[in-house]
Design a binder for these strands. Structure first.
Lengths: 355, 355
DNA sequence: TTCCAATTTGCATCCGTATGCAACACGGTG
DNA sequence: CACCGTGTTGCATACGGATGCAAATTGGAA
């Protein structure tokens, strides 16, 4: 149907190499006097083909610059070698780093990353419908945004899905998350060691599991240690400005020794507000800690004490889950908790190690 | 070949809804007593089909949750509706913002983004070979990393390619870039107005066109204004630490009134180094300006004067190029320069507008 | 030398959708 | 009533590669 007619009648199309269509396995096979199956097998590791034939085909393929068409391959095999990555907030510097490492690791084992940037508010199903149509092999969700388990199940439609830093129980979704409770308790312990007694918590997105775990872990440990929770600010976003506003609110009451922000971006906004707007000194007047350990937390001006997420390990585990038997992921959704590390810096009066 | 045999003999497979394969157009057609073509046409805008038939098919399709398989569609049409995005540095906060806006705009017109995260140093052709095999409709390159025009031409293989913030002349690649010369001159003018006379330039990646343009524009304008170029630091990366080191080097010579860093991340590292390590006051002792206007530049501690890149406009232009006749892009590669905006803040002693 | 097993190769068909072309339906005109 | 044009519909095949099965080849054992 397409482009029948004699191949080179209308003269060389303008634009030179531009409209030249890539060579196909059949053409390559005909040139070599072998069958198309042979070409396909030459490119399939472990296929039943003689070593010398394979070599001859691959050599010639390299010469004429043949590469198997991935689309056709996807159609006949069940695999697409594409992983869908669902993201909603690339502004928080924690995520770009994670996405970068993740996509690099996937590339290393021959998987590509198809990015789905969902916008909260508008029609989620519509945004995710492409996720179904593209037949991705698996889905990785790196999104703090509201995304119900049922919507997600619909979108992934029987494909393995792995949530990073979000935990949903009721569905067949796997989760890989940092041990938020452990981290929050470590911050509480650290505050206590540094002498704080009246402490505050600043939430990110209140309803997210991540926030709830950090909040509960912190508040519980605070109580165990006999400290006072002097303030607790609800939040609607993980952002610099939200941190600023929360810090000002807490500073106005003048009854807090230390603030634990649900993540680093909040904490950094908080530090700036405390110093520039509230006239407080950090850590002299008030201690501040965050969560994640984004690059800015290490900048000298902030020097933010934080709980470092094990990004490399998270990536490793996720990639292993995908690399392994993905159908196993479907049968038994697993939740994996990874340990992080308390990074003590000057924002809580600690003396950090030399860089 | 696959899954022949009677459909429901071996009982419901374990895992419930998990392994159920999605319905196909043919099955849907048979259920409705129409031809598969009809189903295809019902989902093709502008196809030759009666309105009531289309409605009936779409309604039933919605009921049984049928959606056309994108892979099969890609194979028969020439379009994949996938845009390859080549990235190399997600750490610089300017890029995540750009990528996010870009992928959202593309999604809005039904295009998905396939992410290619290239690592400098290792084999580029190998990394980009997937770009060819996946038949992407177009390629957008957002990468400061070394990537020769010829490598890129090979990788895109007759597909339209658009470079953002990089200009390559010799090939048939389109470019959309900020007017770096204009921006650099604006910074120079601003320095002059603020009373600086001995100024320094800190390069990012020296050989990139972006850096060269900013450098030349700045140095040229400096000379025109009769100012002295007191230092010029070569660079191997656009990073916080590179900015730190450069700033310390310049501060040690004590002969500079103002520093123009090739981008904001460098400038921010520079400010921190000047204040925390060199004991200088910014802007009292030395003025600092950057380029890009990343979020951190607006944070009160930095309050960085910078030249804002017209991100929204860049995205708009790129998407328009892709949305329009892409083959036109191939025939006539165009380079588009967009104007940015000088943002005067306190790092150069300016009084910023109230937030 | 004969026969069988193991390995290699090719043939035919499938994956699921798009589309050129022919067939068909319907309404109006001469 | 024959004829034609417009608008719909279905048939058949193409897209490019993967793979079950049968055929062909090879080597070695009896």
């Amino acid at each position: 149907m397409r482009k029948q007619g004699s191949p080179s009648l209308q003269g060389e199309p303008p634009g030179d190499a531009l409209s030249r269509k890539p060579i196909t396995a059949r053409e390559l096979a005909r040139m070599l006097g072998v069958s198309q199956s042979a070409v396909s097998r030459a490119f399939t590791p472990g296929a039943s083909i003689a070593a010398d034939l394979r070599e001859r085909i691959l050599k010639y393929a390299a010469e004429v610059d043949y590469q198997p068409n991935a689309i056709a391959s996807m159609l006949s095999k069940s695999r697409t070698n594409i992983i869908g990555i669902v993201v909603s907030d690339m502004q928080n510097p924690f995520y770009p780093g994670l996405i970068e490492k993740l996509s690099r690791s996937l590339q290393r084992i021959g998987l590509q990353s198809l990015l789905f940037n969902i916008t909260k508010g508008s029609n989620l199903e519509e945004q995710l419908s492409a996720l179904r149509r593209y037949n991705v092999d698996a889905v990785i969700v790196i999104s703090a945004t509201i995304l119900s388990g049922s919507t997600l199940s619909w979108a992934t439609e029987g494909r393995p899905a792995i949530l990073i830093n979000r935990v949903i129980e009721d569905t067949n979704l796997s989760c890989v998350a940092c041990n938020n409770v452990e981290g929050a308790r470590a911050i509480a312990d650290h505050f206590h060691r540094q002498g704080a007694r009246r402490v505050a918590y600043v939430a990110g997105l209140s309803h997210t599991t991540t926030n709830r775990e950090r909040q509960n872990g912190f508040v519980t440990r605070i109580a165990e240690l006999g400290m006072t929770l002097s303030a607790q600010i609800e939040g609607r976003e993980y952002s610099y400005n939200a941190g600023r506003r929360a810090a000002l609110e807490i500073a106005a009451r003048k009854s807090t020794d230390a603030i634990f922000f649900a993540n680093d971006i909040l904490a950094i906004g908080g530090i700036d507000a405390l110093r520039e707007e509230a006239g407080c000194r950090v850590p002299d007047d008030i201690l501040v800690a965050g969560f994640d350990d984004i690059p800015m937390a290490g900048w000298p001006h902030y020097n933010l004490t934080t709980f470092r997420q094990p990004v490399d390990e998270i990536v490793r585990v996720v990639v292993e889950m995908i690399e392994g038997d993905t159908s196993a992921l479907l049968r038994a959704a697993t939740t994996i908790r990874l340990s992080g590390e308390l990074i003590e810096r000057r924002s809580t009066g600690a003396q950090p190690d030399a860089p």
